[in-house]
Every structure is written in structure tokens, then in C-alpha cells.
Design a protein around this nucleic acid. Sequence first.
DNA 1: GTCTATATGTTGATAGAC
DNA 2: GTCTATCAACATATAGAC
Lengths: 214, 214
Amino acid sequence: MATSISRSPRIAERRDRTVEAALDHAEAIMTEEGAGAVTVSEIARRLGMRAPSLYKYFPSLHAIYDALFSRGNAQVANYMNAATATSEPGLDHLRTASRAMIRWSIQEPGLASLLFTRPVPGFKPSAEAFAPSQAMWQLWRHHLTVAAQRGELAPSADSDDAMRMLTVLISGICSQQLANQPGASYEDGIFSRLTDEGLDMFVHRYTHEKKGTS
Amino acid sequence: MATSISRSPRIAERRDRTVEAALDHAEAIMTEEGAGAVTVSEIARRLGMRAPSLYKYFPSLHAIYDALFSRGNAQVANYMNAATATSEPGLDHLRTASRAMIRWSIQEPGLASLLFTRPVPGFKPSAEAFAPSQAMWQLWRHHLTVAAQRGELAPSADSDDAMRMLTVLISGICSQQLANQPGASYEDGIFSRLTDEGLDMFVHRYTHEKKGTS
DNA sequence: GTCTATATGTTGATAGAC
DNA sequence: GTCTATCAACATATAGAC
């Protein structure tokens, strides 16, 4: 992703290091001040550069956000792959992945808000940057299918609505945690502590088939 | 809240109308462009005023956000009071209030994000502006107590954790709906359509006592 | 690749004429 | 209460010297 094409590999490497350093700072700004606080000037300031110099690395602020979006996707994918490495396909994977997703979002609130909400008024990620995100959700969806086939969940869990309900739970826990107790860790958070209870609630609903509405 | 003290009631009235008009515009900006897009200049522009004139009505941009916060609280309280006017105390009230809250948040995404998240980096509502919000949640909490006493929910539902779980569901539906299908109505939204299913899931969990975790 | 200099726009906020 | 004028910052972005 961050590999540039150049005649000299040494120069390209150095260039890539600068690009990565710029994104490191941008990420830090997001975490500290929110996603909307990222500016070309502030990144340059932290790099010990003048703002115009940064335009040699990125064509625009929009491009920086796009690179951050891609980086966020890569990070969360790595984090979840590592977390679910030894998980069984199906329900076990879904539980582990859900916990990992919430844990990561709390560790990286800036990147998470960029990936999962629209915190920057003018910015929409490019199709390329967005594609891995879709792939990730399809993987989740697949594990719902597996869980239903294995009988760990009811057949109705193999549906887009069930998938949406699971994302509702995860995003709800994250947003409540970050809004009401920012800075708290996954273990200490009064909302993130409810993760397993929420998952049980979901499993309960999609194990015993639906009852009537009052 | 918006009543000013003045010797002449006529002038005070006119002043209050201007204040309200300014907040109307600010609200519209929030809905159209996001909570972070509210600026003194843009409000003045829409009022047909110069920016400095607005400082006769508000001491700072921060004060405008605070007034918007108060207004949001009043609006959502009115909306929910109207919606729950004929509801039975307890579970019926909670169901109706949850639907109303989600419906209102989708209709007023700008105000809702101001009330329930922290979309503006520098802004924290004043204690006075925040107080009604706390009162509202205490009312919800009260209805959980009533529902448990009536036997509509299990005793464990009379807890802060159950309250948090309910807010997780509501905020999760809102945030997913607004992020993934902005502009859709409550009826058409692929996430807001899950409201009743989510409530059923919650009720199911807090009716049948908790089972073991896998 | 870095810089200075600059163009152009925006913001929040104040002073003071009318 | 409105305006003009102004300030000090800040932003994105470009041109061109070195």
C-alpha cells in the first residue's frame, strides 16, 4: 500500500518511512483530539516540517484521510486475525471477533470513528480504501452462516438482519463507551464490560427462535 | 431558558425571536453538514447579518453550542413525552420511549449527535445544559424498576447494567443507521427497522434469567 | 525534497462609528 | 443593534529558489 515506485530503492524506502511517520502523527492527532482535528499543518508541525513540504508526499488532505482509512482497515484486520487465529469457525469465531473489534475500537478511537462513522464532513473514502472493510463484514457474515449450519445458532441467524443486529450491539457498546467514559480501558469500561452479556443476549435470541412481540 | 431580562418586554421579545432564529439556522446547519460545521459566520450569513452582530446575542461559539444542547434536550424531552403520553408505566413505556428516541435521533441527526456523542472537539456542555439529560435517563431507569416490580421483566433488569444495555441497543441502532444509510426514514431504514426486534431481544434476555456463557 | 513566499480562503473575536 | 474595519490565527494549496 505504502510502497512507492522509484528507480532507487533506498530513496523509496526513505520516502515510505516519511509517509508512515506522517500517518503515525495523523493517527496520534486523531486519538488525542478527534478525527476532525487532523490538518496538514499540524502533521507537518509534528514532523518538524513546513506544511508545503508535506504536499510532496500527499496530494491533498483528502488523500491523507484516505491513507488513514486504509491503514485503519489493515490494522483492524491484523488485530482481528491475530485474535481469532485459534478460534473455531462459527460462533466461537464471532464471539472472539466481536470482543477483539470492541477492544481495538477502544484502543484506537480515532481510527475507529473514521472507519465506522462519518466524522469528517467532506470526506468519503475511495472505493479502493473501502473495499477491505466490505470484505471483513462478509467474513463475519460467513461465520454466521457456519454457526447456523453447525446448529450453534438458529437458521434465522444466517441472515443479513442478524448480521446487522450484531453490528448494532458492537457499535452501540463502542459508541456508548467512548462517549460516556472516554479513556477507560476495555477491562475497566462500564459499557465494554457488557460485551459478553450482549453477546449472550444475541446468542440467546438467535438460538431460541423468536417469540411474539408484546 | 431563552428569556432575557429587560426593562422593555417588546424589545426582549424581539431579541428572543432573533436568538431562536439563530438557533434554528444552527440546527439546520447541523442537520445538513454535521455538528462540526456550525460557525458564527455561517449562522450570521443565513440570518442576513454580519458575523460581529451575532456577538450581541451570544458571547461565543461555545455559548451557541451550549444553547443548542439545551434546545436538543428540550426537544427530545417534548418528543418523548408526547410519544409516551398514553403509555403504561414500566415495559410499555420503555418500548415506546425507545422507539421514539430512535425516531427522533434519525429525524434530528445533528442535535442527536451533539447530545449523545462528542462531535465537536473543544466543546463540553455546561452543567446546567447537561442536567436535563441526566434527568431523562433517570426516568428511563425508573421505568426499568417499575417493569421489574410489575414482573414484566426479571429482577435483574432493575439495574444500571440493564439500563446501559438498553442504551447500547438504542445508540447502536442510531449510529449504524446514520452511518450506513443516512437520509433514510425510520420506517425505511434497514437498521431502524430492527428496533422492535432489538427490544424483543432485550426483553427476552431480561425475562428469562441469564443462562451460562459458552 | 526542503525551504520561503505567496495566494486565497476561512475562522473567532474586538473596537468603535452610527 | 447594526454596521465597517480590523486583528490574529488558522487552513489548503501552488510557485519557484536552492
